[in-house]
């Protein structure tokens, strides 16, 4: 996996967190972008493609869970990881139902974070590959059906 091609958006109102995580992930090779609130995050996501978004659950203008639904759909599908200082089962379930791909509690050791990020991006790649293969297969099957229908 070419980390340099992976773009990640971090959303957190704490600048120190933004900066430090950005530094860690960049040091690992990822390309990072930051947003300090929900609106900025949505704006950025509209204009740019991100493989992954790391979202704080509490943001000044909206809930992290709300942001999950507001982010534009992308292809391949953006990996959304919730990082929360308020770990609760309710939050976790809600997050997962609203489209989160992972749920992490603060504080998270950078090593762990890196592990999760890498895993999720790899997963994304696999899904993408799989969906590409499926699409191919679907197209192939469609063609075969059409040929059959048309007696080709």
């Amino acid at each position: 996996m070419d980390k340099t091609k992976k773009r990640i958006l971090i959303v957190d109102d704490d600048k120190d967190i933004l900066e430090s995580i950005k530094e860690i992930l960049e040091a690992d090779g990822y390309r990072l972008d930051t947003a300090e609130n929900g609106c900025e995050a949505i704006e950025k996501a509209k204009n740019n493609f991100y493989n992954m978004a790391l979202l704080d659950i509490k943001l000044p203008d909206m809930e992290g869970t709300e942001l999950l639904t507001q982010l534009p759909a992308t292809t391949p599908k953006m990996m959304k990881v919730i990082i929360t200082g308020y770990p609760s089962q309710d939050n976790a379930i809600r997050s997962l139902n609203l489209g989160a791909d992972a749920y992490l509690t603060k504080p998270i050791w950078p090593e762990k974070l890196l592990e999760v990020v890498e895993n999720k991006l790899r997963e994304q790649e696999e899904i993408e590959e799989m969906s590409q293969a499926k699409m191919d297969e679907l197209i192939q099957a469609r063609i075969r059906r059409l040929e059959k229908e048309h007696g080709l």
Partner: peptide, 21 residues
């Protein structure tokens, strides 16, 4: 605790990050 926890979690997260860096 929840409040304190949250309040400490952020600085802690920053510190963890910085230590790593």
């Amino acid at each position: 605790a929840a409040m304190v926890g949250h309040d400490l979690r952020n600085p802690l997260q920053v510190m963890m990050n910085l230590v790593y860096v």
